[in-house]
């Protein structure tokens, strides 16, 4: 199974994603250059975190028009699985692969810390190794993570079970919604209508080994292997 990891100018989690794939689930990973129209026959595409094109104009707005993204969009529309993390989530929203947008954190501060998120759906390519209600401890590192969409879109996402992760409160009230960045309905991750594109602000690829502080993100990769494994 081959994971294609896109490198944009300003991506900085591409190597983390590479390590997560190669060292933890032992699968093949290749880098995809933003200027090439070549997905190198990848089975999964990862849009990694970072600051593509310096976040100029809006986070993800420029990357969305880079050459490789035209192929990624076509791949996603054919049903190809895409894991879009952090800046990748912003790019996927700008590209119209996912609904809504990610705006400046309500605090106006860049937030870099471990947070707790709750698995809201395990009926996906990316979370089938979790149970609904599982609390994961994973890092976030973003300035623009406030998920925003109109009420109709939010209701549809919830109604269709497409909210995959929500920010969760402290240990005593893990079921409470709580959002570090002001995200509407504490949304941390969603899938598209056909379930093959996951966008999430937290970084599962940085939580794949207890040496990193948590291995709660590992099952995202194991889930993909279990569902797509070729």
């Amino acid at each position: 199974m081959r994971f294609g990891i896109v490198t944009f100018p300003g991506s900085n989690c591409d190597y983390d994603a590479y390590q997560a794939v190669v060292e933890t689930i032992g699968e093949e990973a290749v880098y995809l250059w933003h200027k090439d129209h070549d997905l190198k026959q990848s089975d999964v595409i990862i849009l990694p975190g970072g600051f593509s094109y310096g976040d100029y104009l809006r986070a993800g707005a420029i990357a969305r028009f880079s050459p490789v993204m035209q192929d990624v969009i076509a791949f996603a529309k054919r049903g190809g699985p895409v894991l879009a993390i952090c800046n990748g989530f912003q790019i996927a929203c700008e590209a119209g692969l996912l609904p809504g947008a990610l705006l400046r954190n309500a605090s106006l501060k860049y937030i870099c810390e471990f947070v707790r998120i709750r698995v809201e759906s395990n009926d996906t390519t990316f979370t089938n190794r979790y149970a609904v209600g599982d609390i994961m401890r994973v890092p976030i590192a973003h300035g623009d993570g406030r998920y925003t969409a109109d009420d109709e879109t939010l209701n549809r996402l919830e109604g269709d079970g497409r909210v995959v992760f929500r920010y969760a409160g402290g240990p005593a009230d893990a079921d409470e919604w709580w959002s570090p960045n002001g995200a509407m309905r504490a949304i941390a991750g969603i899938v598209n209508e056909t379930g093959n594109v996951l966008g999430m602000m937290p970084h599962p690829e940085r939580a794949v080994d207890s040496l990193l502080g948590s291995d709660d993100g590992l099952r995202v990769f194991e889930s993909m292997l279990a569902r797509i494994g070729v």
Binding site: L57, F65, A101, T148
Partner: peptide, 8 residues
């Protein structure tokens, strides 16, 4: 297409 985000 680019300068403004029609969602927000």
């Amino acid at each position: 297409k680019l300068l403004a985000n029609p969602v927000t």
